[in-house]
């Protein structure tokens, strides 16, 4: 028996609900291949269910249409991409990556015993075997390697089965406009969620006068920053956030900002769940 927090239950329900509904309005039910067709239970027919899953004998006995629920319908594939590059190592009180890891942990906390947790790192998914449940979640959390956003998105598109749930966490500085097609393809194929790491100084740049900045990925900058520059910075950060969220949303992704102080709540917010404790000025 796995005890699960309320947000985790809500996220799981949202993901399962997302799997059951047709992915195109008025279109045919999603056809996807699972790991197998192990019978789990019978339930009432829900519009959108694959008619091939209707158990006609059981329907005749009960008088209502009954759908055969197989393992694929109740087991999730929880995939994740976490940008752990140096640009995520910055933050006001702690690195944004810490919040990202919290969100990732909350994501894998959604997993039930039959769910499969994978993480896309480098050119591969980890763990590579058929591990399921918390074992696969722990292995996915431990996975490490060099982060490359473009490669990760390509791997996700080619390796994830249709209907899988994908969570992508990052600051998306290296998300090129040319990758929008990839985002759209993933959005059609999987149930995708994007968390955009919020700039730690989105509300006020803590600089004045002669300042020195170090790039998380190298480089140094000496400059004079006054009121004009601070105002321009605030505008640019908000415009960038709005632009990125709009791109993901247009590609069919669920989106939210990743707040430095609470990664798990940021993930819950993406699913429209109560997100206590997020600093959202």
């Amino acid at each position: 028996m796995i005890s699960r927090t309320a947000p985790a239950r809500g996220i799981r329900e949202a993901l399962l609900h997302g799997k059951r509904r047709p992915r195109t309005p008025g279109g045919s039910p999603t056809s996807r291949r699972g790991d197998g067709y192990e019978f789990v239970e019978l339930r009432e027919y829900v519009p959108g269910d694959d008619v091939r899953r209707i158990d006609w004998a059981a329907s005749a006995r009960s008088g209502d249409l009954q759908t055969r629920v197989i393992l694929e319908d109740v087991a999730l594939t929880l995939a994740a991409i976490l940008d752990d590059s140096p640009s995520m190592q910055v933050g006001r009180r702690r690195p944004m990556l810490a919040a990202g890891r919290e969100a990732l942990r909350a994501w894998y906390d959604v997993a039930a015993a039959d769910d499969r947790c994978v993480r896309i790192v480098g050119d591969a998914m980890h763990p590579s075997g058929a591990q399921r449940g918390p074992v696969s979640a722990a292995a996915a959390m431990r996975a490490s390697g060099t982060f490359d956003l473009g490669r990760a998105l390509h791997v996700a598109r080619s390796a994830l089965r249709p209907g899988a749930a994908l969570l992508a966490i990052g600051d998306w500085f290296d998300l090129a406009a040319a990758q929008d097609g990839l985002l759209h393809a993933l959005g059609r194929r999987c149930d995708c969620t994007a968390l955009l790491a919020r700039d730690p100084w989105f509300d006020d740049l803590p600089l004045f006068g002669l300042v020195r900045m170090r790039g998380a990925e190298g480089g140094m900058l000496r400059a004079y920053v006054g009121a004009r520059e601070r105002a321009a910075y605030a505008r640019a950060v908000r415009a960038r956030e709005a632009g990125l969220l709009a791109r993901f949303a247009a590609a069919g992704w669920r989106t939210s900002l990743l707040y430095e102080n609470d990664g798990a709540a940021s993930l819950a917010a993406a699913f429209g769940l109560h997100a206590r404790g997020i600093a959202r000025s």
Partner: peptide, 14 residues
């Protein structure tokens, strides 16, 4: 020093 994610963005924006 202020460690920042992306200096190129900062310079272009500010």
């Amino acid at each position: 020093d202020l460690a920042y994610s992306n200096l190129a963005f900062f310079v272009a924006a500010v």
